[in-house]
Each structure stands twice: as structure tokens, then as C-alpha cells.
Design a protein around this nucleic acid. Structure first.
Length: 428
RNA sequence: GGAGGGAUGGCAGAGCGGACGAUUGCGACGGUCUUGAAAACCGUUGAGGGGCGACCCUCCGGGGGUUCGAAUCCCCCUCCCUCCGCCA
């Protein structure tokens, strides 16, 4: 959530920042501002009435102790009258508060000043390329991964669809081993600074609200209605809620966590897009890296997360590019995001394989995660940041296409060998 | 799933319906004393919200209710513990 106090004290700046997203949220912002004024007026009056009731009640007690029953009853009666006013104001106060929160929960984060201008994906700024060159491909590398996977017996989409429906996948043999190897590599590479966590895959609605996945994007997530639980779309969800309702010591920040989990996405609204192969699937494995930080640390932590995600692609011998997302393409909770796109020569596409985001205190406000400054003073919301260290399907696809040899086998980059029981390539 | 017990401040642990936002102990912080430390003593020590401010309001697992007044009484829910059942 954006800071209501800032809406109050700095409305023009908040509105201007929000406007950069090019959404219709300015109406919402204005409604929040008006409701907030009403709310504070009602709250103040309600508190005055309550205070009066408390005073009268105390008087009743005193009078009764003194045996002045008639007077006590008269004062009690007066208090009874006020009780009605109190109930009325209280209901209005609660209503206003709920309305404000409801709107606040769907107002997106304010883009960072540094985020480039722009209204959509076309305005994202490519800030660099890394890994191997994205040019100069051999004919043998121009084969889509689903064909490679089938030929080598390492990808079994047909049977996956039979058991789970379209956009579900199944790796087999060395394909499955490769999938696991990628995750282990990602985990091991980041174990120097990140605590490994194995969180739940099903979470309560509140947990999804904390990160911003609910209430606005409920169509994108799987909902187990019988038990009212949600399948996590990313480990960001449980990892962010790990510190929910807590006050952290500044000394432990930045606090870094990583997790390998399955991720579930309904991919509603993308029917018919990228339907072949591994480009868009309902369930996939991912290693997420995440940090809680102070505002002062956030920039450096953001850069570090990005560097770590890049390093893996580099080690895997893939071609990738880094995009600085423009204000109009930023996810709801993010104020600054770098996307990593890996080039897959077989399908001739840049595939988004990581989003490294800085959320400011937007998620921390929703999740009530604060830290107590070492210098003393009241707790303040932490900043949260996260990114995919490695998301399996698209990296798997790019890897298999990039490293395909003229004989149809797929050479495995050296970093993976220890995780592949020593195998250096995948052959038919 | 069935039966019983519990949930209070960082922790431990009190709390006849009316000076209880909450005794006390520990911990933490500040101070006195000390060459330094320990001990002892004194003091401070939860969170959220409103108001320019004096100050006011809320929070004793959550939600309802009774009452002039609820941490204290009633109802529902959640979670934890013990026992039984089931189970990877």
C-alpha cells in the first residue's frame, strides 16, 4: 500500500508519480483523499464521545460507592444516551476505514523517479546485454526445444497434458535431472548470503494480499476453494510473509532468503499465446531470492540481486539482456524492476526469465513488516526486494536450444556437471 | 475426526465488572557508585491511530453480545498443548 500520510501531506507529488503509470488510479487516489478527510473527522468526534462516556461511567462508579444511587442512575442514563451516538459514529468510522483500505489495496505502488517513462513493454529500456553473443547461430541451434526434448526423450508434453491438461509439463530422464540441477545450482550459488527456506505451497488469502497478488489479481491464481487456500504463484509470496507482523532489528538487515518452490499460475488472459513447449506453463519450478532491507540499503541490494541472477545465465553460457521496465509496464507492487530476458535461438525469441524488483515499503505496509532503527525511535516499514534467481522452463528451453550440437545432442555447461552425475551432455 | 486444557506486554507470570494499558519478576536501556566490571540502588522501557498542541482514542488470540462501564460475564471462530483415532 502506498502511504496514506503521504497522500495527505504530499498529494501533488503522489498523484504525479501515479500518473506515470498511465492507469486510471488517479480517480481512486482522489476518492481515498476525500474518504480520509471524512474518516478523520468522524474518528475525532467518535473519540470525543467515547472519552465522555468513560468519564461518566467513572462517575457512576464513584457515586454508587458513596451510596448516592439516584444521582448514579441519572448519570448512567446520560451515558446511555451517548452510547447510541457512539455506536452510530463507530459504524461510520469502520465503514470509512474499510472503504479506504479497499481502495488502497488496489492502488499500485508509485514508480521510482529513476524508472524510465513509458506506457508499455515497447518503452522498456534495454540497458545491457550479457552472456554469450545473441548473434551468429548455427543451423543446429535453430530447433525449438519441444522438438529437441521429444527427440532426446527428456520432455513429455503429450502425457503431461493427458494427466493435467494443456500448459502442464513433464520432464523425463536427463530432462528432469537437468531441471533439478538448475535449481540446485541456483541455490548453491547463492548460499553464501541467503538462507534457504522451504515454505508452504498453499497459503491463506492474507498471505497473497501482503505481496499484492490479491485482491486485484485473483484470476491469475489457483484457489483451493474447499479449504480457502491459494497456490503460490512464486516463492515471493511465502517469503515476504515470513516476517509478517514482525519488528526486525536493524542489525539483521539486509535479511536475505531464498527458496526453491513450484509456482502455479492460471495464466488467465493469455489464452493462445506462447502455447507451445515451455514458454508459458501453469506450474514450474523456480528459485527465488529475496531480501528485507532498510531504505538506505535497498539500492545496493537491488543491484546485488540483479547481479546474482545475471551471473547464473552467464555461467550457463546463455545470451541475455537486461531491461529497465518503464513506469507503465511495472507490476502493481513494484517501484523499479529489471527484467532479464534470455535469448532462445530455436524459437528465436527473447524470453523473460527473471524480474528483479524493488518494492519500497509497499509490501511491508500490507504485511506489517517493520524494523526498529538502531538509533532508536519508532519502527518503520522495511523495504522488500526480490527476483528470480532461476526459473526453470524458459532457462531449460534456452539452454537446450543454445547448446544443441550438429549431431542432435545437447552439451551441458561445466557448472552443471556436478549436478548431472558427471554427465557432460544429453544424448538420445 | 473425537475428548479435555490453554492463549495477557521482549520473555515469565498475576489480575473480586468500576483509577487495569494492566501488579510483579526477568531481560533491555539510562544513571549513581567503581580504576574498570560485577553487585547494589534510582529511573526508563509495547504497538496503532487522531489532534498545531495541552491531550484524546484503540489494542489483554480474533469476531459478536450483555452492561452506564468488560482483560474480567455470555456466544462463535482460530491457533497452541495433552490424550484417542487416522495417516506419508
Amino acid at each position: 500500500m502506498i502511504d496514506l500520510k503521504r497522500v495527505r501531506s504530499d498529494y501533488p507529488a503522489v498523484a504525479a508519480a501515479l500518473a506515470r503509470r498511465g492507469t486510471d488510479d488517479l480517480d481512486r487516489l482522489e476518492r481515498v483523499r476525500a474518504l480520509d478527510e471524512d474518516h478523520r473527522a468522524v474518528e475525532t468526534r467518535r473519540n470525543e464521545v467515547r472519552s465522555e462516556i468513560k468519564a461518566l461511567s467513572r462517575t457512576v462508579g464513584d457515586l454508587r460507592r458513596d451510596g448516592r444511587m439516584d444521582e448514579a442512575e441519572r448519570v448512567a442514563d446520560e451515558s446511555r444516551q451517548l452510547g447510541e451516538t457512539e455506536r452510530e459514529l463507530d459504524a461510520r468510522e469502520a465503514d470509512l476505514q474499510a472503504s479506504i483500505r479497499q481502495i488502497l489495496l488496489v492502488i499500485p505502488n508509485l514508480p521510482a523517479d529513476e524508472a524510465p517513462d513509458g506506457g508499455g513493454p515497447d518503452d522498456n529500456v534495454e540497458i545491457r546485454r550479457g552472456g554469450r553473443s545473441a548473434e551468429g547461430w548455427e543451423e543446429c541451434q535453430r530447433v525449438p526445444h519441444w522438438e529437441i526434448g521429444e527427440a532426446l526423450g527428456i520432455l513429455d508434453l503429450e502425457r503431461a497434458v493427458r494427466m493435467s491438461g494443456s500448459m502442464f509439463t513433464m520432464f523425463r530422464g536427463m530432462g528432469a535431472t537437468l531441471s533439478r540441477a538448475l535449481c540446485q545450482l541456483a541455490l548453491d550459488t547463492n548460499a553464501d548470503a541467503f538462507e534457504e527456506v522451504r515454505p508452504p505451497s498453499l497459503v491463506l488469502g492474507d498471505t497473497m494480499v501482503s505481496t499484492g497478488h490479491l485482491p486485484k489479481f485473483s484470476d491469475d491464481a489457483y484457489h483451493v476453494t474447499r479449504d480457502d487456500l491459494w497456490a503460490i504463484p512464486t516463492a515471493e509470496v511465502p517469503l515476504t510473509s515470513l516476517a509478517r507482523d514482525e519488528i526486525l532489528d536493524e542489525a539483521i538487515l539486509p535479511m536475505r532468503l531464498m527458496a526453491h518452490t513450484a509456482c502455479f499460475r492460471r495464466e488467465a488472459g493469455s489464452a493462445g499465446r506462447d502455447t507451445r513447449g515451455l514458454l508459458r506453463v501453469h506450474e514450474f519450478d523456480k528459485v527465488e531470492i529475496l531480501a528485507y532491507a532498510t531504505p538506505e540499503q535497498a539500492d545496493a541490494v537491488h543491484a546485488d540481486l540483479l547481479a546474482r541472477a545475471e551471473r547464473l545465465l552467464d555461467q550457463l553460457g546463455l545470451a541475455y539482456r537486461v531491461l529497465d521496465l518503464c513506469a507503465g509496464d511495472l507490476g502493481q507492487s513494484s517501484r523499479r524492476t529489471f527484467d532479464l530476458e534470455v535469448y532462445a535461438p530455436g524459437v528465436d525469441q527473447w524470453l523473460e526469465c527473471s524480474s528483479v524488483s524493488w518494492f519500497g515499503d509497499y509490501q511491508a505496509r500490507r504485511a506489517h513488516i517493520r524494523y526498529r532503527p538502531s538509533g532508536g525511535g519508532s519502527p518503520v516499514p522495511v523495504h522488500t526486494l526480490n527476483g528470480s534467481a532461476l526459473a526453470v522452463p524458459r532457462v531449460w528451453a534456452a539452454l537446450v536450444e543454445t547448446h544443441r550440437q550438429p549431431d542432435g545432442s545437447v552439451r551441458m555447461p561445466e557448472v552443471l556437471h556436478p549436478y548431472l552425475r558427471g554427465a557432460t551432455s544429453i544424448v538420445a
